[in-house]
Design a binder for these strands. Structure first.
Length: 549
RNA sequence: GCGGGUGUAGCUCAAUGGUAGAGCAAUAGCCUUCCAAGCUAAAGACGAGGGUUCGAUUCCCUUCACCCGCUCCA
């Protein structure tokens, strides 16, 4: 019935998202903006419900007095909301500034892209033809590679290689260009003809901005955060000093982040402005592996409990060579989005064991891994490449009298990706008998009641005989407890269909019998089953159903 | 960033170098006693900019967006 990994199915989901007001393209009346999306009336409710569920389940409703299943011990959870723009040094020490900031150069012929500063080259000449041969190779391979490339370029046999006249040593391409080498003479690393390289362009995956109304010199430069996590690390000591929390504990944050994705694509999956739900969980180094497994399994369970189809979810442990330079272990929770090829999955959340990398970075400065250990990165002058805060971010356990830098487990979830996954997963097309008993196709969003934008619709069966009045009375009472809608327009079947598309789990219909015995019909979105319930028990009944899993 | 494709109403689609048409949805009203019935009314579009032309939604150029494939993705 459903077609996983099916583009036309994705098209219908996107179409419904637009038609019913879940998701719009940003700035659409001006032609749209690549990589930016807006949430409409239903979409904002869905996304807010997802974030609220996350916050409730991880933070607000967390029982710090109990040892939860799978957890090594009891733990505390608290929250934070930090600014999007932070001190520029935050990003220099975290590593984002260096790693997100590159000059890239494209080859129009080979369609390949290179790090500008990784290319080097030298002049070669043969029988009056002259070309600046470049290579991506480094070290001992660079020289021979340029020879091989020049040989091929001049169309020479191996024994003629000595006829090539070389001028100067290999030098970095940026330096050569600066020294006057014309781009038209440069032979790209994979090109057959010279002059195919584009101008170098600066790829900055962080959004840059300037602080102050009189933006002037480079010192004003600041960045929109590419992740919310750093704000937590930077506030680690503040939270510790003011909230009585003790290790192990977690700090949660929900907020917007920004990345200049090179290729935004696949609806909201890769947006340039997006929202994250992140936890930084601080624990004793000796227990960190256990906590990593706890959070990985806990977060996996969360998606299942909210109704994502298990067969479309995947928990993927990263291989050792895939791990970031600081990470001890990482797992991704991935979903088989319909826009992906069969067998492919897209990341919803990453759970990373980050060791003490982050807190140490903000103490000492930017770290690099050398011989298996994290050490301060230094420049040619021997000074730190990016100086840390110098503040002591270690933790003192006054029961065990131990001082240590906590290790960090980071469950980092994408709110927009999660919303998209639940949207895709909820989309169903099935058949419902119409009033003549003939099957008629319907589109229904089978969203978990906790996530559904509207929990219940209150519908008078017909617009007369006092039914609207009774319905409105119920609507007003229920509205105080949950999002609901009143609708008296058109036939009741049409109204059911409208609510199905919005994902409303329950419809309450007031009919002639209601006037006699004060019972209403409760219609279930997924099963279409109807039951009669006393109108005065509706509020309690639905609140209970909403609270139960 | 490169190559290919696509842009007409909220959605799905027509037609046309000379006033852009339909179905569905949505709106107002009538009718309607359980799964998109019917009737009436009104409303709604050629992605943007430029060029050719007496006249461009149509032809040309540019641009923006979306889709597919590469590329990239700490």
């Amino acid at each position: 019935m459903t077609h996983p990994n099916d583009q036309s199915r994705m098209d219908r989901i996107v179409s419904l998202a637009k038609r019913r007001g879940f998701i719009f393209q940003s700035s659409e009346i001006y032609g749209g903006l690549n990589g930016f999306w807006d949430y409409g009336p239903l979409g904002v409710a869905l996304k807010r419900n997802l974030k609220d569920a996350w916050w409730h389940d991880m933070v607000g409703g967390h029982d710090e007095l109990a040892t939860l299943p799978g957890a090594p011990t009891a733990y505390e959870m608290t929250g934070l909301d930090c600014t999007i723009i932070m001190h520029p040094q935050v990003w220099k020490c975290s590593g984002h500034f260096d790693l997100f900031h590159d000059w890239m150069i494209d080859c129009r012929e080979s369609k390949r892209r290179y790090r500008y500063d990784h290319l080097q080259g030298r002049w070669a000449a043969h029988r009056g033809k002259r070309v600046f041969v470049t290579t991506e190779a480094s070290g001992d391979e660079a020289g021979p590679d340029t020879v091989a490339r020049a040989q091929k370029f001049f169309g020479l046999r191996a024994k003629q290689v000595d006829e090539i006249e070389w001028t100067g040593d290999l030098e970095p391409l940026p330096a050569a260009i600066t020294a006057g080498v014309a781009a038209a003479d440069v032979l790209g690393p994979d090109a057959a003809a010279p002059g195919t390289l584009t101008e170098p362009r600066e790829f900055n995956l962080m959004f840059e901005t300037r602080i102050g109304a009189l933006a002037g010199d480079a010192d004003d430069r600041a960045f929109l955060r590419p992740e919310t996590a750093q704000g937590i690390f930077v506030n680690f000591k503040n939270v510790l000093d003011t909230s009585r929390v003790r290790v192990p504990f977690g700090i949660a944050q929900v907020g917007k982040s920004f990345r200049n994705e090179i290729t935004p694509r696949n609806f909201t999956f890769r947006s340039r402005e997006f929202e994250q739900m992140e936890i930084e969980f601080f624990c004793r180094p000796a227990d960190s592996a256990d906590w990593y497994r706890y959070w990985r399994d806990r977060r996996w369970r969360w998606y299942l409990d909210l109704g994502l189809t298990e067969g479309r979810l995947r928990l993927r442990e990263h291989a050792a060579d895939e791990l970031s330079h600081y990470s001890v272990g990482t797992a991704d929770i991935e979903y088989a989005f319909p826009f992906l090829a069969p067998g492919e999955f897209g990341e919803l959340e990453g759970i990373a064991h980050r060791g003490d990398f982050d807190l140490r970075s903000h103490m000492e400065g930017k770290l690099v891994r050398r011989d298996g250990a994290l050490v301060l990165e230094t420049g040619a002058d021997g000074k730190p490449r990016h100086k840390g805060s110098g503040k002591d971010l270690s933790y003192f356990d006054d029961i065990t009298r131990e001082r240590f830098v906590p290790h960090v487990i980071e469950p980092s979830a994408g709110a927009d990706r999660g919303t998209l996954a639940f949207l895709c997963d909820a989309y169903h097309e099935d058949e419902v008998p119409d009033e003549d008993g003939k099957p008629r196709s319907r589109t229904v969003m089978k969203l978990h009641p906790r996530l559904a934008p509207v929990k219940a619709a209150i519908l008078p069966l017909v617009k007369k005989d006092g039914m609207p009045e009774m319905a409105i009375d119920l609507y007003r009472r229920l509205k105080r407890h949950m999002a609901c809608q009143y609708d008296e327009k058109g036939s009741v079947g049409r109204r059911y269909a409208r609510q199905d598309e919005a994902g409303t789990p329950w419809c309450l219909t007031i009919d002639g019998q209601t006037l006699a015995d004060r019972t209403v019909t409760l219609r279930d979105r997924d099963t279409l089953a109807q039951e009669r319930v006393p109108v005065d028990e509706v509020v309690t009944l639905l609140r209970d159903r909403l609270a139960s899993p």
